[in-house]
């Protein structure tokens, strides 16, 4: 039975690039605890020697020919950009500490 600590919640938030205020964090922490505990029900099942199911579809070698097609214009590509100079997507400069 794993314990969901504040540290774990912080680590997961970091990995997920999410942030929570104190109230949200407390709800998340307690929900995670309940749900993860619920997930541990699987430990009741003996899966010794069972191969994990990696792909639900049985097809293999679904490949495409090396052809150039399907591109859109730069204008279309930048249409939804929150910030752009018409050439690039712009993000606030990565601050080097």
């Amino acid at each position: 039975m794993i314990e969901i600590t504040d540290q774990l919640v912080d680590n997961l938030a970091e990995l997920s690039r999410l942030e929570f205020d104190a109230t949200q964090k407390s709800v998340i922490k307690s929900d995670l605890q309940k749900i993860i505990q619920f997930m541990e029900k699987l430990n009741e099942l003996d899966t010794e020697g069972v191969e994990p199911l990696l792909h639900i579809s049985t097809r293999t070698n679904v490949l495409r020919e090396d052809e150039v097609k399907g591109s859109i214009t730069r204008e279309e590509g930048l249409k939804n950009a929150p910030a752009t100079d018409g050439q690039f997507f712009e993000v606030p400069k990565v601050i080097q500490k």
Binding site: R64, E67, G70, I72, T73, R74, G77
Partner: peptide, 23 residues
């Protein structure tokens, strides 16, 4: 290759920025 690994945009070098793009 002519095109990218997982889609048909051109993989060639040196084009104008953001012109070898698709959804």
């Amino acid at each position: 290759t002519e095109s990218k690994l997982f889609c048909g945009d051109s993989a060639s070098f040196g084009a104008e920025p953001n012109t070898h793009v698709s959804p």
